[in-house]
């Protein structure tokens, strides 16, 4: 039988799913054991017990110096920035993307500009942002918006443009105005795509968030990682990285669930 036709059975599938994770954990444990054997105070690859002690210190008890529960206060600060940034970016993408995709005049004037903007490397703009917007929340949120909004806008505009011309013409024959067509024909069709686009931008958004927090902050997930990196506290960094990954995965799943709950038909479209 050809390899492309062989499929794992259900049990084997679970096993195959777990294997890469298990291999990663095993590699870590072996490396950690070897290093700690050579130097018991080694910080690079802490043992599971040290990791657990680190997790307890950051998540399960207040910090002795500030009295704050570090992981939770950092998470709250970061998620607030992330939600604000992604929220603003989504609204911009929806309004601008629909307008550019729908109206030839706007497409002529803004289409190339948005494409141009989406190619600017946002991290290179950081110094400008910090000087114009200060070191507070505004600059951090703005970096996320600048980082993800142009790409989301382009994506949405392309999607609007892909809507079959016949559908628009049909609506026109039923005497729909531009506004009505946008609202009743285009909007419902692109909303699922907007959510998917948002999902795909979660990774970049986290990247920009952490970059902004590394430069100036007094709380946040990225702030903590870059702070404790100064003394190589991998027992804090590893749990934080795992936590950020988990948050991103959960947000990804939540947005996808939302899409298929609110727009059940979009699942059919994707399969087609």
């Amino acid at each position: 039988m050809r390899w492309i036709n062989r499929r794992p059975r259900r049990g084997a599938e679970m096993l195959l799913l777990c294997l890469p994770f298990a291999a990663l954990v095993a590699a870590y444990l072996i490396g950690s054991a070897i290093r700690l054997d050579a130097n018991p105070a080694d910080k690079l690859l802490p043992s599971p017990a040290q990791l657990w002690a680190g997790i307890q210190r950051i998540a399960l008890m207040p910090d002795p110096r500030t009295g704050e529960w570090l992981l939770w206060s950092d998470t709250a600060a970061s998620l607030m920035r992330l939600a604000a940034g992604l929220g603003i970016a989504t609204v911009i993408a929806l309004l601008l993307g629909m307008a550019v995709g729908l109206l030839p005049y706007l497409r002529a004037s803004l289409g190339a500009f948005v494409a141009f903007l989406s190619m600017v490397p946002p991290l290179a703009l950081l110094p400008i942002l910090f000087i114009t917007l200060g070191l507070g929340e505004a600059a951090k949120i703005c970096l996320i918006v600048i980082g993800v909004a142009p790409i989301m806008t382009r994506d949405l505009a392309l999607r609007v443009h892909e809507i079959p011309r016949e559908m628009i013409v049909k609506a026109e024959t039923l005497s729909a105005s531009t506004w009505l067509i946008a609202l009743r024909v285009v909007l419902p069709q692109v909303l699922p795509r907007l959510l998917t686009s948002l999902r795909l931008q979660l990774g970049p958004a986290f990247l920009f968030l952490i970059a902004a927090e590394a430069i100036s902050a007094d709380a946040g997930l990225g702030y903590r990682i870059f702070l404790v990196r100064r003394y190589l506290a991998m027992d804090v960094i590893f749990p934080y990285v795992a936590w950020i990954t988990l948050l991103a995965v959960l947000a990804d799943i939540a947005i996808d669930r939302l899409r298929s709950r609110v727009f059940p038909w979009s699942d059919l479209e994707r399969g087609a």
Binding site: A22, A23, A26, A27, I30, I34, L44
Partner: peptide, 20 residues
């Protein structure tokens, strides 16, 4: 599975040996 295990051990050794 064996290949995976060997891979894991190799990676672990690489991580560890970096400093030794």
């Amino acid at each position: 599975c064996r290949a995976r295990l060997i891979g894991a051990v190799t990676l672990g050794l690489c991580l560890a040996v970096a400093g030794h």
